[in-house]
Design a protein around this nucleic acid. Structure first.
Lengths: 121, 121
DNA sequence: CCTTTGAATAGATGATCGTCTAAACAGGAT
DNA sequence: ATCCTGTTTAGACGATCATCTATTCAAAGG
């Protein structure tokens, strides 16, 4: 029943007490889940994850600087950018012929806060 | 072009310099993206996000303690648990008639590390 | 052995997704 | 005005997804 991933085997019989993350502390009701899940979903595609990473790395990025790195059509890249944008992870602005995208760090922070090991511990 | 989410408006013209997160520092090549994206994808469904949160909160949780909280059939819950498990986010063990699930904190930590604000800054 | 209970698997169905091509749109430059 | 280039939108198509019911499996108890 094990699927290899990293190191710690996580003793099956251990009585887990310490909270592993905010997920374990902050109650995630249905409303919260429906607000947060689309962000994770947006990052749940390899192309979009790479797009987000490139935009995060480059700061303020023209679509024309993203497209060449993928073996995909322009419209497909545009579609993925739209998904990221509608999830609230990025935003954009047209400047003449070109459109520039940038990361919304608050959104990433929201997700990170849910996942990271309990900062209080 | 704005989609409301949190507070910071993120000035469009600002020359972003400081890395917002590990995404901006760690290069996310295609291979990495294909390894990580399924984990985000698994959390990208409201039901699975709530399942993960409940398991994280409860520590070591019987399926029978999860199912009643959702308006879904047993097999559907079972399916979602399988998705989370195959993504490496949870693991399970049968104990007699019951099956218990627990969180794999290393996996959550991997994702958190990618998203959280640059810890070096 | 048979029954019972908890959970997973099999298979079906309608919805959503990722991708493409073709067309439309936005702005500069001739 | 007209063209050219970068980007988005529209629409189509096959693949994957979330859910269900029916069935099977696992393990305990008579």
């Amino acid at each position: 029943m094990q699927i290899p991933l990293m190191q710690v085997p996580t003793p099956p019989g251990s009585a887990v007490v310490a909270p592993c993350c905010a997920l374990a502390v902050t109650p995630v009701d249905e409303e919260t889940a429906q607000r947060i899940a689309p962000m994770f979903k947006a990052l749940g595609d390899p192309v979009r994850l790479q797009l987000a990473a490139r935009i995060a790395a480059a700061g303020r990025t023209c679509v024309c600087d993203l497209t060449p790195h993928f073996d995909l059509s322009g419209p497909t890249i545009s579609h993925h950018l739209k998904v990221l944008r509608e999830a609230g992870l990025i935003d954009c602005e047209r400047k003449g012929t070109w459109v520039y995208y940038w990361i919304r760090p608050e959104s990433l922070a929201t997700l990170a806060a849910l996942l990271q090991a309990d900062p209080v511990a």
